[in-house]
Design a protein around this nucleic acid. Sequence first.
DNA 1: AAGCCGGGGTC
DNA 2: GACCCAGGCTT
Length: 355
Amino acid sequence: MATKAQYVFFRESLMRWHREQNDRSLPWKGERNAYRIWLSEIILQQTRAAQGLDYYLKFTRTYPDIRSLAAAPDEEVFRLWQGLGYYNRCRNMLATARFISDTYQGRFPDTYDEILALKGVGPYTAAAIASFAFDLPHAVVDGNVYRVLSRFFAIETPVDSTEGKRIFASLAQELIDADSPAAYNQAIMDLGATVCTPAAPLCMFCPLAERCAAYRQNLTGLLPVKEKKLSVQTRHFNYVVMRSGDSVWIRQRKEKGIWQDLHEFLLIETPEAATLKQIEKEIKQLTTARVALRHIGSLRQRLTHQLILSEFYEAQLSAQLTVPDTEGFWVDISELQRFAFPKTMVSFIAAHLHG
DNA sequence: AAGCCGGGGTC
DNA sequence: GACCCAGGCTT
């Protein structure tokens, strides 16, 4: 059972360790500007610091304040976000930038409840902004915190259960150093990221090891507990790259689901792997024009929850035919760079479409 | 409460 | 190949 003394040990040892680390190697650490903190937190949701770093630099350079982001065209912002994934974040980020520009006259809200109400901002991000920008005593609970707390206190409640979320949020809030919320939040996440790592944690260098329940009972490999296991769905995409001279036909994915708002070529999804003949048959349903397909490549893309097997076909057309029931359009190949595509599509375009 | 949403690093 | 990442939204 956790005692008050353990809470004090945890808090004070963690803060002492953090003071001695003196780690300020990432540009958003120590940042006080709410806009830049918000931007970094959105970019870093479910994203490693190393992966988000270049995007953070691009966005802060291109949009130095929230009004400049709010004023930017959707397509330009999505193009800047291209390759980072979870594109809902980008859409919500834009909506929030415009909301703050319009409703708060560009001034970032400075209360926890107002921050939490913003689109794309949940409990974690609200606590991060509130503490880092405004010194408000709200404890962050992210993957790092689940790991550190579940191990130190040997909590076996699944972190992805409703009860687990409640327990860890409550515990984190009990532990926070209310005199230095920003430093405390930074400290616990740094510890999780550098010492209390998912696999092979560096317990020999951990300031909490001496009273860590998981370390003492050899349970670090079993904690934290997660109850949901993800299922990976296999999908078969058949892309038809319709070309006419130097132009190519693309469309924006408006339907809910993967890659919403990004662009793509004519897509025919089939329940199983399809042959060239089958795809040609599908094309015949769309147009009376004679379309000859040529297979030009394959792509295997492994995502967290889907395995996407793509086949690419090229169709050379004599005229820019219109595809019924779609909102696609023809664009010069040299202009493709203005539009955001899924990451693997960008590689494919670079390899196969040179005008 | 459960499902969905990208891309990449690590072991 | 499995797991995870400075989570949040939708249904």
